[in-house]
Every structure is written in structure tokens, then in C-alpha cells.
Simulated assay, not measured.
Amino acid sequence: MAKCLYCAAVGETEEHVIPAAFGEFRSAPKLPIPLCPKCNNERLNHLDQQVSRCGPEGFMRESYGIKGRAHKTKVNPFARGSAGGSRLEFSTFDREVGVEVHLEVVDGVVTQMCELILVETSMGRAHHFPLSETTTADELRGAIARKNVPAPYDVRLSCHPHEQEWVEKLLREHSPGIVFSEPKLMSHIIKTPEVKFQLSERYFRGIAKIGFHYFLSQFQAYSGHHSMFSGIRSFISEDTNEPVRRVNDFIQHRNHPLVYQMLNDEARPDGWKAHILAAEVKPGLCQAHVQIFLTQENPNLIYTVKLAHDRSLVEQEVAAHAYRYFHDGKQGSFSGEASPLPAIRVDQAFPPATPAVSA
């Protein structure tokens, strides 16, 4: 019976290389080494949640309307964070409300969020509290207490008319006797909205996991259990108190494009969207490259994941796949198809990589 890649338990579950939250891809490579249920469903699932909800990829996933597995509980990443990560903060100043308001993307359409806004009278600083039909008065009370908003402050409500009934019921439970004025809607003129991400160590470990699992799916002669991979296994599976140092030990930004180096011109974006994964073995080094959501409009960041250093490595091998979404939406259970790409060039005549995070 196979041992789990990350612990001493028996491996029982099969793992996709790309998190299921980004959809299922026909002919997609799979990790050849099984994982135990605890690692797959708990420890590593926390990493997948942060990549698919808390980072730029989470924003693009919502913008493109990408759906994960149907049985998973839907989480609005603009309303709350996941697995210890922060929520997406998408905002703009709105002249009708007279303060910064938060936005969300619903089925690919940008709209205002339903939220309570407390505005400090002295400083004018706004504090935002997203509301949903499942929010309880105690949860709202706790969220406001944690923010410790200094009094006095103005209270403003931003919501759509169809949300007003349940919002007012929630606020009466929170503050009996409250008197409501008409909630203000946005002016429908969105000027230079900004989206903010707070990328935690778990996010980067999730990127590393994708790269490591793709490498193992392509070069099965290299056992993930081998001692030269002990560092990357530990980085992926263990929390740490030194997040910046550890992230930069294993992950860098690649400063030249992956797709541009493909030998096949058809690999370049032309109205399609895809994830690009690549892996390589070269003298002394194993590494992978991860680019989530490459599109014609958005050349998203490319991460290079250092997997192993070993002087005995003398061969040079490369592999790459494009996980391309179907133009017309899902085909059965599949969101797209994974297909091999011609080998990436691995020569050194390019700008050097840079650290993934700054201290």
C-alpha cells in the first residue's frame, strides 16, 4: 500500500494538479502518488482555498464565472476570507453614498456589495461590514467589536432594494429601535476601482503544491518521497513562523513569459483563457513554473518553484501543459481540456527571477 506523499499514513485519495475550484479538465495530469484523506481534505485543502479565493486568481475566477464542484458550499470571497486568508477588497469612491463603497463580482458582473459602513466623524475613515442573509446579529456585533471603531461615527447602509427587507430585520435584531432612512445605491459610475489582496504564506504554499504535483505527474522517475524533495514537502505541508524567508527560499517571480517561449505559435492567447504549467530538470536543479489565468487581456504573474537541488542531476528534461477553458462553457463535467505544449526553452539568456515577497 502506497505511503502518503506528506506523512506516514497510507495514501488513499487521488489528487488533481490544478485545484478543483478552477474546474475539471479533460485529459489533465494527475499526481501519481496518493495522499491520505487528512492531508488531501484538510491540510492541503486550506492551501487550495487561499489560491482559489484570496489571491488575484480568486478575483479572476469570479470575474470569469468559473465554478468548482457543485457539492461544495459556495463562498463569496468578497464577503469573507478562507482558511485564514483575507477577503478580496474591491472598492471605489461613490459620490452618491459619499464614501468609499465595496464592490463584488456576481456572475461576471460588477455590482455594489450589501454592507454596513461606519464612518468616523473626526477622521472620515470608513469601516466596512459585509452583510448576507446568513449573517446573524451576534456575528455582526462581534465584527464591529473587533474593529473597535472610535465613536462618534456615522452609520450608512449600502444595499439593493431587494435586500432591504432582510437587512432591516438583521439590524433591528442587532440594534432594537433603530430608525432607517432610505439606503443609498451607487451612482452607477465606477471610477478607477481598486482590488486589494493580502497574500499569506498559505497562498504561496498552494502555488508550490501545484508546481510540485505537476512535476511529479510528468517525471515519474523522480519519487516525491526522495530526500532531495524533503524541503519542498515540508514547506508545502507545514505552517511556519518565518513566512517571508521560507517563501523566498522556494518561490520566485519569473520575469519572462512562458508561452512566448513555446515553439508552437498557437500556444499564444487569442481570445482564450488557460492555466500554464511547466516543469524542468536541468543540471543540479528541479523546478516548476505556475501561471494561473493567462488570457489575451491579462498576462498573470508566473511563479517559479524551486523543488530540489542535487549535484547528481545531469540530464535536461522539460514538460508543459495548457489547461484551456472551452469557449462555450462546460462540456458535461469538464470546464476545459489539458494538452501538452512544446517544450519550454531553458537557456539562461533572460532577466533573472525576483523574490516572491518583500520583507
Rank of each mutant, 00 (worst) to 15 (best):
N241K: 10
R268I: 04
V281C: 06
W272K: 11
G224D: 07
A278I: 10
L277A: 04
I236T: 07
L263R: 07
G271W: 14
P269F: 14
H289G: 06
A279F: 05
N264H: 11
L277F: 12
I251F: 00
R254T: 14
V244N: 02
P283F: 00
D270K: 11
L263W: 13
N255A: 08
S223Y: 15
E238M: 06
P243W: 07
S223V: 01
L263P: 00
N264D: 14
F250V: 04
A267H: 12
M228C: 14
H256I: 06
Q291S: 15
H225E: 12
R233M: 13
D270W: 14
I276K: 01
E242T: 12
Q261A: 09
H253P: 04
M228S: 15
G271N: 09
R245M: 09
S237A: 11
Q261K: 07
D270N: 13
Q291E: 12
I236Y: 05
H275K: 03
R268M: 15
I236K: 00
V290H: 02
R245P: 02
V281T: 08
L285T: 11
H289N: 05
H253T: 12
A288D: 02
A278M: 10
R268G: 13
P257Y: 10
A288Y: 02
H253W: 04
E242W: 09
V247S: 02
E266L: 14
I236N: 02
Q291R: 12
H225L: 15
F250N: 00
R246T: 06
E280V: 13
F229G: 01
R233I: 13
T240I: 05
H275R: 02
H289L: 11
D249Q: 05
E238P: 05
P257L: 04
T240R: 03
V244R: 09
M228A: 11
W272L: 08
F229I: 11
K282V: 07
G224M: 07
D239F: 08
F235A: 04
D265V: 15
Q252E: 09
L263D: 04
S223G: 08
F235E: 03
M228H: 13
G271E: 09
I276P: 00
T240F: 04
D249M: 01
G284I: 01
H226P: 13
L263F: 10
H226N: 15
H275N: 07
I232A: 04
R254A: 06
Q287Y: 08
D270M: 11
M228P: 05
P283A: 00
S230A: 13
K282D: 02
I251Y: 00
R233H: 13
A279L: 05
L277E: 02
C286R: 01
E242N: 06
V281Q: 03
V290F: 03
V281H: 01
Y260P: 07
V290G: 01
V244A: 02
P257V: 09
P283N: 01
Y260G: 11
H289V: 12
